[in-house]
Design a binder for these strands. Structure first.
Lengths: 162, 162
DNA sequence: CGTTGCGTTGACGTCGGCGTCAACGCATAG
DNA sequence: CTATGCGTTGACGCCGACGTCAACGCAACG
């Protein structure tokens, strides 16, 4: 199997496969023409990587799974290192979800307040007592940076004690 | 007030202020030396921006708040456009949290399963029935990309129907 | 006079995970 | 012979929000 076929079978691109190889996640043999040659095992490895990435794992975090598969284990998560990654990711997810919920409630409260004030302000025109506290730096919430997506760069201030 | 003082008072850097100016979020006057000059109003605007960014809003999303303040309103969220941004962000947060919870449960389930199999496999050595289904592409979960942080790039497939 | 400290503009670096383009080789089909 | 299609390597582009460095000006202090 050559790179194009593998890419198609894994639902990705040749660029991605070459990138993974460059990152050391794929070990690739070559044929007489210098073309990369892959086997079914490589497909399994590749699917493992893609699955993890779809769940938000960084490429580096997939490495233990890849090595586990290459060591002959039936699944990528059959090895202790992989389980460690699972656990770390789980904690990371929990922290992230908690943080997002705090922000969500903050935004919700601000929206509600602003809507009330808009409703109270409009029908009467601008009264002179419009001097509310400026909404700058609210209570806690150190900061959260809503992330519909994108992986996790090294986080120095996160909820974890590293 | 010059740029250094404003930066210090707002808890940010001069680089950031110049960046905001370049993005059109800060309108800046100059003195005789060509130095930027700021007033208290600029501090309020700046704090509004920083607060929103700390909550994960993109710079562009702070623009309505900035314009609202500059229009003379007592708060950045006194204008309908700002409220719209609040509502959009709220929906975004809800979608993101829901997605992360799905992923979290997925990872949790995988971890639990892998732990059980590890516990069952180790004490007995490798039995020949190790041929479990390969853990590649699981049930639903289109993909979630855990995001401890970092803002939201334009997302074509998100839970919103744009 | 030099040094420190503030300001200025311009421009490149960062991070991850690829996309995209260029310029090439080799093989098969017409 | 040429076109098409696959492969190869190398290298730049992208995204956001700045960090960082360079090279400069201008003021006050000693």
């Amino acid at each position: 199997m050559r790179i194009g076929e593998l890419a198609k079978r894994a639902g990705t691109t040749t660029r991605t496969l070459r990138y993974y190889e460059a990152r050391g996640l794929l070990r690739v043999a070559r044929d007489a023409h210098g073309h990369r040659t892959f086997g079914e095992n490589d497909l399994a490895v590749l699917r493992q990587i893609r699955t993890l990435r779809d769940h938000g794992f960084e490429l580096e975090e997939t490495r233990p799974f890849v090595e586990c598969l290459r060591a002959g284990h039936p699944a990528g998560d059959s090895c202790p290192d992989s389980l460690e990654v699972y656990r770390r990711k789980l904690a990371e997810l929990d922290a992230c979800i908690a943080e997002l919920r705090l922000v969500r409630d903050e935004v919700d409260a601000r929206l509600a307040r602003a809507e009330v004030e808009a409703a109270a302000g409009l029908p009467q025109g601008p009264p002179p007592r419009c001097e509310l506290a400026p909404p700058t730096h609210p209570p806690a919430v150190p900061h959260a940076t809503v992330p519909p997506h994108t992986p996790a760069p090294p986080h120095p201030h996160d909820a974890e004690g590293e």
